[in-house]
Amino acid sequence: MTKGAPYRSLRGISAVVALLAIGAVGCSEVSDAVDGAKDGAKKVARQRSVFSLDLGDCYNPNGAAEGEAYTVEIVPCEEAHEGQVAGEFSITEEKSYPGDEAVSAIADKRCPVEAAKFAPDTWALPKGVAVFYYTPTKESWATGDRAVSCTYTKESGTFSGTLNSAKTLKSEQTAYLKGSNGVYDAFWTTQPEKDSVEEDLPGYKAQAKAVAAALDTHLTGLKGIDGTEVGKLREQLSKTAEHWKKAANAADANAFYIAYDSAFSGIDPEKSVAARKELGLATTVPADEAEVWAS
């Protein structure tokens, strides 16, 4: 690819093609050099343009810093790799290039949604795996590039196997995850920017209303799932939903705080572990979520 060719921007990781130089002195060094050359040749043969990434592709980026990406190494998913394409979409709402920050804002909003369709149970993701994305740059946009590739990428080290669990989940597992993910999506996507309720009571009430609605949807889905622990969770979340509704209708900050304490603790991920175990889902609360509720 020529120097002036368009590239795509990778947030969190960058990829550049590496050149391999080998020298041999003794027999063992020659053997090592040959093995290295073979590995290098395999890596070169697996190079693909970032424009050709497809949903489900497992890959290794050719670099480790944020920046522009031209190529990645596509590998079989059973081999150790750093990332997997977990979602795709095109930016159709913008006629002209909106700028790097605007493109990132679009990807920040849509990639977690797309990735969740690919791997609904985020608790089952390998430790250290997070959502990253390849996005168009001003240069590639000019050539017609509008695609965003959402990925699950390990920030340090590698993992093996595909993360695509959507097709292997049972109906009750899917129903549970859809409802549960909806609750936490509602909580995080409506989080007010102000740190205190006094500074933005309407914003916090709007968040409470969104979480209460998501809980109602989750509870509807749980009605069709059998199990002792699921039943206990359903009963507990019913009470929690009422606390969120009280917070949503709070007359002032004090009334909001009174309802919010029970509302917030009611969606503590730890309280869903027993039901998850009963459903055959992952039971280890992700460290970042555990930290939020522990504080």
Rank of each mutant, 00 (worst) to 15 (best):
K95E: 13
V148S: 12
S49A: 11
M1L: 11
K205I: 09
E242P: 02
L169H: 15
T190C: 08
K42Y: 10
T240V: 11
A274Y: 06
N181C: 08
S265C: 04
A116I: 02
F264V: 03
A282S: 07
A69N: 15
S49I: 06
D121S: 01
A206K: 14
S156K: 02
G179E: 04
A287V: 15
K154W: 01
C77T: 04
V16K: 14
W123N: 06
T151I: 14
C150D: 15
A119E: 13
R276Y: 06
T162G: 05
A210T: 09
Y260W: 06
F159L: 10
T190F: 12
K154H: 03
A214S: 00
G56L: 06
Y204M: 10
K223Q: 14
A294L: 11
G224I: 03
F256V: 07
R276V: 05
N62K: 13
V17R: 12
A37D: 04
A206N: 09
T122I: 08
A214L: 02
E114N: 10
E242C: 01
A294C: 13
Q173N: 03
T143Q: 09
A142W: 04
S238K: 14
A18P: 06
A253D: 03
E235Q: 07
K109Q: 13
Y204I: 09
V30H: 05
